[in-house]
Amino acid sequence: MGPRQTGGISMELRLKNLSHAYGGTEVLRDITLTIPEGRIVCIVGPSGCGKSTLLRMMGGLEQPDAGEILQVGSPPEGCLNPLTYVFQDFALLPWRSVEGNIALALEDHRLGRQKRQAIVADVLARTGLSDFAGALPRQLSGGMKQRVAIARALAVNPAVMLLDEPLSALDAQTRELLMDDLIGLWTRAPFTSVYVTHNLAEAVRLGHAIVVLSRRPGAIREMVEIAAPLEARDMADPVLAAKQQHLWELMRDEARAADAELADA
């Protein structure tokens, strides 16, 4: 049962010459990047290089000092919130049940009670949470909390999903499972997505393209494309291993340089 049409048309994001500084600290420098429709773009980079800032700007939660962010194309039919976030720390309301947390994203739209309940039931089923509809966040494990947050994001049928280290608060096994879930969701109904992570294995597994940012001020150091389809990626594949190794070398250089700067200061 699908209460709405999912997938199909979504949106493209274009970033042009984006720069930003907090006070005197330059955080982002001249970022030009396109997030193509229906693709997952991963952003990796050393700690503090401005990844979260960049993502907040793409989500319209913060304004860049210079440059612009354009959305190209119109959001799909039934899309309630074109640019939708998944937060690292889940951002669930502790006083609402799982169901209530998902409904929160729908309540400001005039959907009618039945439609709303149908959407909630649908996303709960898609994320395997149907049995926990009435549970409060404190009763859930970290992995389940992030599933709820993903279900909430799916409920508004986003054109672009913005994920800020969605799995980094979770243990390795849960991370694997949720990655499989994300891949499953994407294969059934491809969405455009920007995925910020520290974890290169995640990036290689989920990204159609991987953007490596330099240390602060974050600038695009390199963009690595991975052609293999998501559902067919095998981490033992030497091509993927080589890409991950290459990413690691880039990151290591940046992290070393950042450390050296800290030591000097």
Binding site: L61, N81, L83, T84, Y85, F87, A91, L104, D108, R152
Partner: peptide, 16 residues
């Protein structure tokens, strides 16, 4: 504050 940012990111009205 992240809960408030979350609300904004889902386009909730100020009053909501």
């Amino acid at each position: 504050r992240t809960l408030i940012r979350m609300g904004q990111s889902f386009g909730l009205t100020w009053w909501s």
